[in-house]
């Protein structure tokens, strides 16, 4: 047990703190979703600050941060939600690499904005890889720390740092993505089973304000408050089921927006159920997926219709943000 000391003990687990990296692609056809950080940019930024590869495993803490007691010296960085970190009770800066000494306790203040904070530790969290990833898929009890969220008393190992941490460096605000405020817009491409709802409902879906429902997690985000959707009448196809929102069970794209019964849209996220029998009106574009991971319950959002060209332009903008991050860290 040469490296037995390089670990932290979970004093308090927070609400649902999981080990996540950039995910486990390639098994969706067997029902295993990609998993990984809901806000990928935030995890990548935290990893780069501590000198890790982009895909090193960190912690994702939602709404309420954990309390972690380190048994070895470490360098950490916290990004994502505005949930100020504290070392032995003394507040530390966000989006900044700072040193933790053996015996110190890392805790968090109350959440001020956003939903998910990311904790990167130089060397990365050392749990076994499953199918090429350390991400936790809690629904299937797979990956991460024993396939589940952290609990008090867990001893979590971290690796030996191979890169150079950027101690004291802070990522400027114009490179970060601002935490979603009121007036948040999720851009979505209509499609999939869009033709199943009436022209009027196609209009109201994008006009109405929706609020994040309490049922919002890594599998999907539910929204409520907009007008119910009306369906184009049909003879139910064999195998689809009698409800007008049913289809013959199909795959669900990441980001797809299903509306069971036509009432409350659900946007599937990194731990998506891979398929099922509800129609979908379209898909949130890849550039806006990180943003969903930072939405809090009751937060108002609107969906905005966008075409493929717009989606690809938004994708390029996100790439540019990543490039600016690289340039900043390369020059600072």
């Amino acid at each position: 047990m040469a490296d037995a000391a390089a670990m932290f003990e979970v004093v308090k687990p927070g609400l649902a703190t999981t080990v996540q990296d950039l995910g486990r692609p390639g098994y969706y056809h067997l029902g295993l979703p990609i998993s990984g950080a809901m806000d990928r940019f935030a995890l990548i930024a935290a990893n780069r600050l501590v000198g890790n590869a982009d895909g090193a495993a960190g912690l994702e803490a939602v709404f309420l941060g954990p309390v972690l007691k380190f048994s070895a010296d470490a360098v950490v960085a916290i990004t994502g939600a505005t949930m100020p970190p504290k070392l032995d009770g003394v507040e530390q800066p966000l989006w900044t690499a700072f040193a933790v000494s053996a015996g110190q306790e890392l805790s968090f203040g109350y959440l001020k904005a956003g939903a998910r904070a990311y904790v990167a530790i130089a060397g990365g969290i050392d749990v076994p890889e499953v199918h090429g990833s350390r991400s936790t898929y809690a629904l299937g009890g797979l990956g991460g720390y024993e396939g589940r969220a952290l609990r008090a008393g867990d001893a979590v190992k971290f690796g030996v740092s191979a890169g150079s941490p950027r101690l004291g460096v802070t990522i400027p605000e114009d490179i970060r993505r601002n935490a979603p405020q009121s007036g948040t817009v999720l851009r979505a491409m209509p499609g999939l089973y869009w033709h199943r709802i009436t022209e009027e409902s196609q209009g109201t879906f994008f006009e109405d304000e929706w609020k994040v429902a309490p049922e919002a997690d890594r599998i999907g985000y539910r929204f409520k408050g907009g007008r119910a959707l009306d369906f184009v009448p049909r003879e139910p196809p064999f195998g689809a089921g009698s409800d007008p929102s049913n289809i013959v069970d199909s795959c669900y794209p990441y980001g797809s927006i299903q509306v069971p019964g036509g009432t409350e849209p659900i946007v599937l996220h990194r731990d998506a159920v891979s398929g099922g029998g509800y129609f979908m009106v379209g898909t949130v574009i890849s550039a806006d997926m990180d943003l969903i991971g930072q939405l809090q319950p009751h937060q108002p959002v609107r969906f905005e219709s966008i075409d493929m060209d717009g989606a690809l332009a938004a994708r390029r903008e996100e790439k540019a943000r990543l490039n600016r991050l690289g340039e900043f860290l390369g020059s600072s």
């Binding site: 979505a188 491409m189 980001g255 979908m280 898909t283 890849s286 493929m308 989606a311």
Partner: peptide, 9 residues
């Protein structure tokens, strides 16, 4: 149908 910018359904 396109499912966003990363899927074809």
């Amino acid at each position: 149908s396109f499912g966003g910018d990363e899927h074809i359904f």
